Amino acid sequence: MKKFILVILTGICLLSCGKGDPVPSVPVNFQAPINPTYSALNSPGGYAIVNGYGVSGLILYHSQTRGIVAFDRCSSYQPEKKCAVTIDDTGLTATDPCSGSKFSLEDGTPVKAPATKSLRSYQVITTQFTIQVVN
Rank of each mutant, 00 (worst) to 15 (best):
residue 46 G to L: 02
residue 10 T to P: 07
residue 24 P to I: 03
residue 41 L to N: 07
residue 68 I to Y: 07
residue 36 P to D: 14
residue 14 L to S: 11
residue 109 T to R: 15
residue 109 T to W: 08
residue 52 G to E: 08
residue 41 L to F: 06
residue 30 F to M: 01
residue 57 G to K: 11
residue 101 S to F: 00
residue 104 S to I: 01
residue 104 S to T: 03
residue 88 D to R: 02
residue 64 Q to M: 09
residue 7 V to T: 11
residue 22 P to E: 12
residue 40 A to D: 15
residue 93 T to H: 03
residue 16 S to G: 07
residue 59 I to A: 07
residue 41 L to W: 01
residue 66 R to Q: 15
residue 55 V to Q: 10
residue 13 C to W: 09
residue 37 T to R: 14
residue 28 V to G: 08
residue 79 P to V: 10
residue 35 N to H: 00
residue 21 D to S: 15
residue 94 A to C: 13
residue 53 Y to P: 02
residue 33 P to V: 07
residue 76 S to I: 08
residue 55 V to G: 01
residue 94 A to G: 08
residue 45 G to Q: 08
residue 72 D to T: 09
residue 111 V to K: 09
residue 17 C to T: 14
residue 23 V to F: 05
residue 74 C to P: 05
residue 70 A to I: 01
residue 86 T to V: 07
residue 37 T to G: 10
residue 54 G to R: 09
residue 87 I to K: 00
residue 75 S to F: 04
residue 56 S to Y: 02
residue 82 K to C: 05
residue 65 T to G: 00
residue 44 P to A: 07
residue 84 A to T: 09
residue 35 N to G: 03
residue 11 G to T: 08
residue 16 S to F: 12
residue 12 I to F: 14
residue 22 P to C: 06
residue 54 G to V: 06
residue 34 I to Y: 10
residue 57 G to D: 12
residue 41 L to R: 00
residue 8 I to D: 06
residue 64 Q to L: 10
residue 55 V to D: 00
residue 96 D to Y: 01
residue 95 T to G: 02
residue 91 G to K: 03
residue 16 S to N: 14
residue 106 E to R: 01
residue 12 I to R: 04
residue 65 T to Q: 14
residue 101 S to G: 00
residue 80 E to T: 05
residue 106 E to G: 04
residue 63 S to Q: 06
residue 99 S to F: 06
residue 57 G to M: 11
residue 102 K to D: 12
residue 44 P to V: 03
residue 18 G to H: 14
residue 27 P to S: 05
residue 86 T to F: 01
residue 47 Y to W: 14
residue 72 D to Q: 02
residue 63 S to K: 03
residue 30 F to E: 09
residue 112 K to F: 06
residue 67 G to D: 11
residue 102 K to T: 09
residue 111 V to W: 10
residue 46 G to Q: 03
residue 106 E to K: 02
residue 54 G to S: 08
residue 68 I to N: 09
residue 7 V to S: 10
residue 42 N to V: 00
residue 16 S to T: 14
residue 9 L to K: 00
residue 17 C to W: 15
residue 93 T to S: 07
residue 31 Q to C: 04
residue 82 K to Y: 12
residue 35 N to R: 08
residue 59 I to L: 11
residue 102 K to V: 02
residue 28 V to C: 05
residue 65 T to N: 14
residue 111 V to Q: 12
residue 66 R to T: 07
residue 86 T to N: 03
residue 97 P to R: 08
residue 25 S to Q: 12
residue 54 G to Q: 06
residue 33 P to A: 10
residue 17 C to Q: 14
residue 15 L to R: 04
residue 113 A to F: 11
residue 62 H to L: 05
residue 39 S to W: 00
residue 82 K to F: 05
residue 71 F to L: 04
residue 95 T to C: 02
residue 28 V to S: 05
residue 67 G to T: 10
residue 70 A to S: 12
residue 84 A to G: 10
residue 99 S to P: 00
residue 56 S to W: 07
residue 47 Y to L: 02
residue 45 G to F: 07
residue 90 T to A: 11
residue 109 T to P: 05
residue 21 D to M: 13
residue 62 H to W: 07
residue 67 G to M: 08
residue 52 G to P: 02
residue 54 G to D: 13
residue 93 T to A: 06
residue 84 A to E: 12
residue 43 S to F: 03
residue 9 L to M: 13
residue 10 T to R: 03
residue 94 A to E: 09
residue 64 Q to S: 13
residue 68 I to T: 11
residue 97 P to E: 01
residue 74 C to A: 15
residue 99 S to D: 08
residue 18 G to N: 14
residue 21 D to N: 12
residue 73 R to F: 04
residue 113 A to K: 11
residue 105 L to D: 10
